Computed example of a mutant assay.
Amino acid sequence: MLQLNIKDETSRLCAVVLGTAVSNGPTPTIDGAYDPKSLEHIKAGTYPVEEDMVKEMEAFNQVFQKYNVQVFRPEVIENYNQIFSRDIGFVIDDIFIKANILPDRERELDAIQYVIDQIDPLKVVRPPEEVHVEGGDVMLWNDHIFVGTYKGSDYKDYITARTNMHGVNYLKELFPNKIVKEFDLVKSKIEPRDNALHLDCCFQPVGTNKGIIYKSGFREEADYMYLVDLFGKENLFHIEREEMYHMNSNVFSIAPDVVVSEKNFTRLNNWLRDNGFTVEEIPYAEIAKQEGLLRCSTLPLIRD
């Protein structure tokens, strides 16, 4: 049995589900794009090819091996995108929460059923249908659960709006002892530089008291200020619009002092090293073209 334990984003990682780019399927049609960044690359003819993405994910896997992390991979579904395992479920404390994802992605959950079978069934929950909540919007920080959402009245018109207020309230009921704080995120169907697809596209904690943040990803300045007050401005690395577009906040922590990052994130990686982090740099720029990066590709199960 897997004894799940996730209380934050940075404690020493012991077990994780890492997505797969094998048999990733053809380049989507323009109508089939889930987000504006993929759309941009489909139109430009620069959408990533499977071979490159498989190599990038293998580089990520090698870092996990180096740190003796137990890695589960989804069973391969032919011609199907299974890179972003963060979307399909997430763990809070010792509870595995299945996400109600876009209906045509339901098969991705089936592909990790063999992992879910190793969890106490009483610890696996599926929210009711009206609850939308994806792992990229859920971030744990000690007694806090940070949740990205979209409060606009046109929520249903945005395929990029992934977590609704039903999702926020569901987590409040499930974890009454935690401080559940939602953040209203900026969304765009057409301009990837103005689209925070998930909370981890504009914010992520690193270490024990630091974070990476993109101020303009928040619709309300008060939400941004909440994090500034909590972490202290001097502990936050502020990324710029282009850095947000390249997903600089979507790194992944293996331990409080070890961060896996994209090798082109020069400014961020220097800041991390200056602040005492070991930075494991890997190539991930092709996968980034689908508006997802390192955190999106992982579903952590156990941290020490």
Rank of each mutant, 00 (worst) to 15 (best):
R193C: 08
D94T: 09
P300F: 00
D194S: 11
C14L: 15
P36M: 13
K66N: 15
V133L: 12
L197M: 15
D94H: 10
R219A: 12
V16K: 00
C296E: 02
I302G: 01
L18G: 04
F203Y: 14
K210S: 10
D143F: 08
L236E: 04
V228Q: 04
I83R: 11
P28S: 07
L174F: 07
E286Q: 15
K215I: 12
G232Y: 00
P26N: 14
M1A: 11
R273H: 06
A111K: 11
V251M: 14
N142Y: 05
E50Y: 10
S297N: 03
R193L: 11
P103D: 15
E134Y: 07
I119A: 07
T160C: 11
K156Q: 11
V260N: 05
D87I: 04
D117L: 11
I77N: 05
I88W: 02
I92A: 10
V147G: 09
P74C: 07
A59H: 13
P176T: 10
R105D: 09
F84W: 14
E78H: 09
V17I: 15
L197Q: 12
T10Q: 03
N275H: 14
D120G: 08
E130I: 05
G45I: 08
D274N: 13
K189F: 12
K189W: 10
F183T: 02
A255I: 07
I97S: 09
Y284Q: 04
I97L: 13
A255T: 08
R73P: 00
V22N: 08
T27P: 03
I302W: 03
R303W: 14
V133T: 14
I6D: 00
E51I: 09
E291G: 10
E75F: 12
N235F: 06
L230Y: 15
C201L: 13
L227R: 13
I30V: 15
N81T: 09
A288H: 05
V91K: 01
V168L: 14
N235D: 08
P48R: 07
Q3I: 02
T27H: 01
S188M: 10
V125A: 10
N275T: 02
N61L: 10
D154P: 03
V63W: 03
S153P: 01
D120K: 12
K181V: 13
V76Y: 12
Y226D: 03
I212T: 07
E58V: 04
W141G: 00
V115G: 00
Y114R: 04
E280P: 02
V260K: 06
K233P: 00
K181H: 09
R273L: 11
R303V: 11
D143G: 04
R267W: 06
D117P: 02
I119Q: 11
E130L: 08
H132N: 09
E78N: 08
L197W: 12
Q204P: 00
D184A: 04
K37G: 01
Y150G: 01
K151M: 14
A222I: 06
G232C: 04
V138T: 09
